[in-house]
Nucleic acid binder design. Structure first.
Lengths: 110, 110
DNA sequence: TTTATTAATCGTAACATTGCGATAAACAAA
DNA sequence: TTTGTTTATCGCAATGTTACGATTAATAAA
């Protein structure tokens, strides 16, 4: 086997899992954190910033882009990446709703 | 290759990635959601609730337990699972800090 | 003790992810 | 056009994940 049975779960559950998976690798966490720190677009220097090879970084960027969390604009020979504001906000809502489903009754437990 | 280069990243980045990975599968999302919905412990019926085989559910529970997000107490022949309140709160703080690193300057972008 | 019930573990096949060298593609500058 | 610079894609080896049948372990009930 080894393949996730997506059809058994709700769209909500699958969506949350997809987002979480994107954050499930420290390199992608580092990329996002750097994009926030730099405060504007990053043109190129992500490979120097994070210690992985250029094809590896490119692959991680591709995944984040495919999910819509970041966007890249071509700027000459280099590409500028930054957070996609609206999509990031929507993603945050989705995750927050999931994480805060408790609040009232977290201690009614064994 | 195929192995994550954990030593290249900060403890914070690795911790976030580990948590995210736990939520990176719809079955584990479903388990957590069901634990919240039921509002108390779940004794046994997780296998019926979610459509996967018993060993598969057991494996997912083990992962969530290893991270400290849930706890299980033996109750006769069955085991009762519920969210681990303190650890869940700490986890939420970690994730929220990561997700809200923006807020001011999300639109200063290309 | 024997039998049932429930959950964990083992073993393994199918599939996915990670990382990077090699290469290609796209563009700017000379 | 040629050369340099930067990013994307290909291909593949190493490792990780997922799912489940078979089995074991633990406890309860008969």
């Amino acid at each position: 086997m080894g393949l996730i049975k997506t059809e058994m779960f709700t769209d909500n559950q699958n969506a949350i899992a997809l987002i979480a998976k994107a954050f499930g690798h420290p390199a992608r966490v580092a990329i996002i954190q750097h994009l926030f720190k730099i405060n504007t677009c990053v043109c190129g220097d992500l490979v120097n910033e994070i210690g992985l090879a250029q094809p590896t970084i490119s692959q991680h960027l591709k995944e984040l882009k495919a999910l819509g969390l970041i966007k890249g604009t071509v700027e000459g020979t280099s590409v500028c990446y930054c957070i996609h504001p609206e999509n990031w906000k929507n993603m945050k809502n989705l995750i927050n709703t999931f994480l805060n489903a408790d609040d009232k009754n977290l201690n009614k437990c064994c």
